[in-house]
């Protein structure tokens, strides 16, 4: 295998890791606050659809109006893809809030709620896309300012010719959509918020022992809702990335289980932000490998069926859960609705 193939592989690893990482961090916020969320998938899907739809509509429309009010100025204020991002985040946050109502306010089963929302998202996205565009539940191909353009980092052209580091910088590090860099920047940000701020301290406490937070006079409900909103925002970015950066438009079920892989990555990372980065890169690498069976065959000298590569993240996660690769201890209050005791 040559250096160019390796670079290609790493390049797609970064592309494919980004939605996993965003969704994984999203899951980290809610699970650290004691709310299990297997609805990451649905939130990403909803956001992907909303982003692509709004970006497409804004880009295509000559002017803009809502309920008869002229809004063309808004269109010139931000580019369509940003409006798409905003719409994606909103859609995802709405789903997160429904999860909150079910699991925080009405103390319902968090697993079932997240699971149900995945179904609702899977159906609803197709319904809306079909209603708006009439193209069988897809959005039209996005182009131009309806997509996030690749960003060329400084020095890319200058150091390109330097052997080794030059192509690495040019091929792998540079040239991604801005959301990729945003995703990677959110890792240290999450770490800092979690471990170095008052909000993080309270949030971690509420996932471990909500009664401690409650008796300290802090609202458990408000903290948990706030965590879910962060989850919603991050899933929203992940979905927007899927449909307006990684791909050019929304297609039915386009997240294809990434929400569950992110969940797996979260467990693999034992609910820690920096470890989440590594596990998402690893799982992204597996996905990149599955796209290039030729490379795998070249390395191991026999044909590895694609499905086996596809299932590697899941198998690894099961091994982690089984305690064969370290022990994963979830937040103690995870999954349990909080009820004040008498």
């Amino acid at each position: 295998m040559d250096y160019a193939s390796i670079l290609q592989l790493l390049d797609s690893t970064i592309r494919l890791s980004t939605p996993l990482l965003l969704a994984c961090l999203a899951g980290l916020w809610s699970e650290r606050a004691g709310i299990f969320d297997i609805g990451l998938e649905g939130k990403m899907l909803a956001a992907a659809m909303a982003s692509a739809t709004v970006a497409s509509l804004t880009a295509a429309a000559p002017g803009w109006s809502l309920f008869g009010i002229e809004l063309t100025w808004a269109k010139s204020l931000l580019s369509p893809v940003i409006w798409g991002l905003i719409a994606g985040i909103l859609a995802s946050v709405i789903f997160a809030l429904i999860h909150g109502v079910a699991s925080i306010t009405f103390r319902g089963n968090q697993l079932i709620s997240g699971f149900a929302l995945n179904f609702i998202a899977a159906g609803l996205t197709v319904l809306v896309a079909q209603r708006v565009f009439g193209q069988g539940g897809r959005t039209p191909q996005l182009a131009g300012d309806a997509r996030f353009p690749p960003l060329t980092l400084p020095l890319s052209d200058e150091i390109r010719e330097i052997p080794g580091i030059g192509p690495l910088w040019y091929e792998v590090i540079s040239g991604h959509a801005i959301l990729v860099y945003v995703a990677f920047a959110i890792v240290p940000l999450t770490w800092w918020l979690m471990y170095r701020t008052r909000y993080g301290l309270r949030l971690r406490a509420v996932g471990e022992n909500p009664a401690a937070v409650d008796t300290a006079g802090i609202s458990v409900i408000r903290l948990r809702y706030s965590a879910l909103i962060i989850t919603g925002i991050l899933c929203g970015i992940a979905g927007a990335y899927m449909s307006t950066a990684l791909q050019a438009g929304f297609g039915r079920d386009m997240t294809a289980g990434r929400g569950y892989i992110a969940l797996a990555a979260l467990i693999f990372a034992k609910w820690r932000p920096v470890a989440a980065l590594w596990s998402c890169l690893l799982f992204g690498f597996f996905q990149a490998l599955a796209l290039r069976p030729d490379i795998v065959t070249a390395v191991v000298q026999f044909r590895v069926p694609g499905p086996i590569l596809d299932s590697l993240p899941y198998i690894l996660t099961v091994l982690v859960l089984a305690g064969f690769i370290g022990k994963a201890t979830p937040p103690r209050a995870g999954g349990e609705p909080y009820t004040k005791e008498r």
């Binding site: 009405f106 079932i112 699971f115 149900a116 179904f119 899977a122 159906g123």
Partner: peptide
């Protein structure tokens, strides 16, 4: 029908 299914699970199982 997927939406209806999701709604039924949500209302009977979580709400």
């Amino acid at each position: 029908r997927v939406v209806i299914q999701g709604l039924v699970i949500l209302f009977t199982g979580a709400l």
